[in-house]
Nucleic acid binder design. Structure first.
Lengths: 221, 221
DNA sequence: AACGCAAAAATTATCTATAATTTCAAGCCA
DNA sequence: TGGCTTGAAATTATAGATAATTTTTGCGTT
């Protein structure tokens, strides 16, 4: 990671994005530029630029003169992101399919196996993201891919919010079905499965701060 | 337009976005922060934030320590934006359809008529954008709508680059077909037409700086 | 105790100044 | 002539300082 290449603003935005996604900073909490600046030993100018980047990714919300806060989210937004991912990943897959090689599909299968073996959410999420990236990247549509990346970041955030600690091992049949369809050159079937796959919304009871339990939702694909 | 409400950075980014979209600033040309700052009578700090916003919209590209330049584009990107718009606008329409009222559809029809009467690209583009916004906004998916907005900005840029001056009047049958399908409650048909509609890429010979002619491409829907 | 007002503190937004890097052009050498 | 070096000018990136706004706190009143 050539982080020395990056500008300070980029470094800060990446670090903050990580914390927001992982849940280390709570939704709705304020991001204070001077505090962040002090933590990273910089002035607040790069911090403000980092805030603009987070805003663009949908991870933070800025109100003029009233500061920046970590974006909140609800079931509606989980659904929205799921549907956007379905639409865009299907589009990307259709364009990527002609350029997929056996080697790429093998790597994607490895990623699936890694996901199935994962004993915690974080490593499952990473493997899952790798799978999707591998089969979509050959579409060669940079704007589409970067939009999908932002949606994956949002997905991961929802996921970590719901499955903070416990995670049960599960084998991903969808990934396998997608790979098998692609290997047979059946792009339509692969696309259809992918579209259904990323719209599957998992549900899980979680304890709230007040001790009560409610259902949390997240995209699990 | 309560531009006094906006922060200086937002005002600058809006103005620069306008110029980039209209073609007043050429693709590839550098945006120099001190020059922009001087023009807007500010320091360069808000200018830098404006640059980050333009970057997020895909209108500018920033290379660390080497400055920001207006994003270039080619036929591939025109196609990419067209396909993303098709996928996302269809999604938005499906969700908006149940909330569409007769009044909204009437307004959309007015927008279509305004487009048909337009004698220049700029007013046609505005009417077209109004039409799409009207029928999609009720989907109530803010993230989706803002992504679509950015894609419309890109579309407009391609359009203005191709049809800088001449524009021929044309009646938009697609818009009418979409409205009629929606009035009959036939969402699937409306969505299918919309998907085809925004992927239609117009082609037009334009004179290059060197006096030669080449084909320019743009999304015309 | 609850409410509202006012002063103090904190915070954001912007400006000015400085350091670091890149660009560009003139001069030099092969 | 052509490519390379070098230094000046331009430009970006960051720091430090200031003005303006918002939030918090504390006090007095009901």
């Amino acid at each position: 990671m050539a982080s020395t290449e990056d500008t300070i603003a980029v470094r800060i935005s990446k670090e903050l994005a990580d914390r927001i996604i992982s849940g280390a900073i709570e939704p709705g909490s304020r991001l204070r530029q001077d505090h962040v600046a002090e933590e990273f030993n910089t002035s607040h100018v790069p911090v403000r630029e980092a805030f603009r980047r987070l805003e663009a990714q949908g991870l933070a919300i800025s109100e003029p003169r009233r500061g920046v806060r970590v974006a909140a989210f609800d079931l509606g937004e989980v659904r929205e992101v799921a549907e956007m991912r379905a639409a865009l990943e299907v589009l990307a897959l259709r364009h990527a399919a002609p350029h997929l090689t056996a080697s790429i599909l093998d790597q994607a299968e490895e990623a699936t196996k890694a996901g199935d073996k994962s004993r915690d959410v974080r490593s499952w999420e990473e493997a899952n993201r790798t799978f999707h990236r591998l089969i979509l990247a050959p579409c060669n549509m940079p704007r589409l891919l970067s939009t999908i990346d932002d949606l994956h970041a949002a997905s991961a955030r929802f996921l970590f919010a719901a499955w903070r600690s416990e995670w049960e091992i599960r084998t991903d049949q969808d990934h396998r079905a997608i790979l098998s369809a692609l290997r047979q050159g059946n792009v339509e079937s692969a696309a259809a499965t992918l579209g259904r796959h990323v719209q599957w919304i998992g549900q899980k009871p979680v304890k709230t701060a007040s001790g009560r339990t409610r259902d949390a939702f997240a995209i699990v694909g």
